[in-house]
């Protein structure tokens, strides 16, 4: 099953649209609640990042019998040093982002903890792509 969502630039109220919808779909498919939580927490973190640190983008979701494959691809400033960005506590979040309850530098490490495969690729001045896979069993 393939799903696509658009993440709109600067639209914080929209953050979570893709994750909410994926949550409903996985529940309907009878995926175990602990696995659903790992999937949607990771996807939500990636969605928030695409709004908080970039200019929006696309979410592509493929659900198979035994796993979910998610890609969040944004247009944005990119990440100059991915290893640094992956460190807990590292954040360049703007004050508006902090006002929304984000910007603690915990998102990427939290994605890492929740998914089975995480690939972050980024080109400075172009954008960032976060690919995640969670196995259902």
């Amino acid at each position: 099953m393939h799903q696509e969502y658009t993440v709109i630039e600067g639209d914080f109220t929209n953050a979570g649209t893709a994750s909410s919808s994926v949550k409903k779909t996985l529940k309907q498919l009878g995926v175990a609640p602990q696995i659903v939580k790992r999937v949607v927490v990771a996807l939500y973190e990636a969605e928030v990042n695409a709004i908080a640190h970039a200019y929006g983008g696309k979410v592509l979701v493929d659900i198979e019998a035994d796993k979910i494959h998610m890609v969040v691809a944004d247009k944005g400033p990119g990440i100059p040093d991915i290893a640094q960005a992956m460190q807990e506590g590292y954040s360049t979040a703007r004050p508006e982002v902090r006002d929304m309850g984000f910007g603690a530098g915990m998102g990427l490490p939290n994605m890492q903890k929740n998914v089975d495969v995480l690939n972050v690729t980024s080109e400075v001045g172009v954008g960032t792509t976060v690919e995640m896979i969670v196995n259902f069993v």
Binding site: S19, V41, N110
Partner: peptide
């Protein structure tokens, strides 16, 4: 960010009152 790292599902006490609070709880 911190709420999203919880494994359990406690009652949340917060001063952050916006749509993101609800979304975060949902996730």
């Amino acid at each position: 960010s911190d709420v999203l790292t919880l494994k359990d599902t406690p009652m949340l006490i917060t001063g952050l009152c916006n749509v993101q609070t609800i979304r975060t709880c949902d996730m």
